[in-house]
Design a protein around this nucleic acid. Structure first.
Ligand SMILES: [Mn+2]
Ligand SMILES: [Mn+2]
Ligand SMILES: [Mn+2]
Ligand SMILES: [Mn+2]
Lengths: 218, 218
DNA sequence: AAATATTTTTAGACTAATCTAAAAATGTTT
DNA sequence: AAACATTTTTAGATTAGTCTAAAAATATTT
């Protein structure tokens, strides 16, 4: 049996390791989980005993195949529920994360596979992130961050890094959504702010915005 | 903050007290919750401290208005999720209970009220039980148990007491569902079994079946 | 290569929920 | 009303997850 807390740690480790590739530090997990390093040490020992993670003292932690499997399944559930909330229950993309954080822990294969079918097998969640299929496969989306986009090129908005309500509402109020076409007009060397044009408007965004918006060249 | 476990105890007490009317014994709760009496004592002390229950040592426990409010809200969520699972995700009525047992604890008013609207404000769950509205109001359904039905009368099946998969599958295999029209033909004094006719068939059901099927005279 | 700083682990304590075993209260028989 | 039976509570442990403070290991400066 895997507990809700274990699932959350595994998911955090997965994300911090760029999909299970790199090793992750205790402090990084602690700050992601909003807990203390000592709690993390205890938990990664437990995950290691249960074979969800490989761990050598002071050397950080990596997920095992089992751990990655668990992580991808939770991410699948999280993102499918997000789609459900937006598509069927009139949630906006800045409201779904918190609720999905809980729904992702409901354990029923039938539930999640029927939900997948009911939603007609969506491939991306409301923030542009790919949804793993039943077998855990998903395509890594091709994208670059706005901060590194070329001046003069035109892009489509395909995702966000920060999924906080604050950031998503900022995008809403500036009429930036998934699918929005963006042309990069100017990059200000002084503060790395970026001037860009949307369908009908021209706006300037700060560096912190530019670091959290993903684009695809078109 | 109310914990998942507290919610489950409150719900159990509510059901055992016939919707919060009667006082409930420690042992009754223990057996309903599949736990030990000593654990129940600890929990009802806590519920009492938190003002969800009134409790005097050795005298059993009753829910406060707050406790009843919590109970009704969880029941509302449980039953709405059951409707969702049956209506939208192809669950059968014997599969929903276990999953709903978990979904009922997800805390989001928007989620449950939007779900209610999405399902078009259902008034009854897949087992015939009434669904409280946003304010916690629901009509107590008029029903009698088959065991006490009159020989010669015709009824409509409106609910079940036992919602176990075993019992519901038994009903399925005998073509008894909510809405099925039933005429009571004979009551056998020897073992209290009952002979009844359905649309196209005549069957005999045992006393334990008859005690778990609710009917409404038509 | 010492000294210093940072990161990580350990030790010990706390809370929620559970258990077993024993004690106390209540209920039922005779 | 005493004896016996049942129910309920208490006392003391256990497990999961967390915390603080101190110790140990590793990393960075000088
Ligand atoms: Mn979560
Ligand atoms: Mn998302
Ligand atoms: Mn429950
Ligand atoms: Mn039900």
């Amino acid at each position: 049996m895997i507990t809700l807390t274990e699932e959350n740690y595994i998911k955090a480790i997965y994300h911090l390791s760029s999909n299970g590739e790199k090793t992750v530090n205790t402090n990084a997990i602690a700050s992601a989980m909003q807990t203390k390093a000592s709690s993390v040490t205890d938990m990664i020992k437990k995950l290691s005993e249960k074979n969800y993670a490989d761990y050598k003292k002071y050397q950080g932690v990596t997920l095992t195949d089992d751990g990655r499997r668990v992580a991808v399944n939770i991410i699948r559930k999280h993102r499918l529920w997000e789609v459900f909330l937006v598509e069927k229950l009139n949630f906006s993309w800045d409201e779904v994360h918190e609720v999905a954080e809980h729904l992702e822990h409901i354990k029923s294969d039938k539930l999640i596979n029927e939900l997948d079918a009911f939603l007609e097998f969506p491939t991306h969640d409301p923030h542009g992130d790919p949804i793993p299929d039943k077998e855990g496969n998903f395509k890594h989306i091709e994208k670059i961050v706005l901060a590194k986009a070329e001046v003069g090129s035109t892009y489509k908005c395909v995702g966000v890094d920060d999924t906080s309500s604050k950031f998503l509402k900022y995008l809403d109020s500036n009429h930036i959504a998934l699918g929005t076409i963006i042309t990069v007009k100017h990059k200000e060397p002084y503060d790395n702010s970026i001037k860009l044009t949307l369908e009908n408007s021209e706006i300037v965004v700060s560096q912190s915005v530019a670091k959290n918006l993903y684009l695809k060249k078109i």
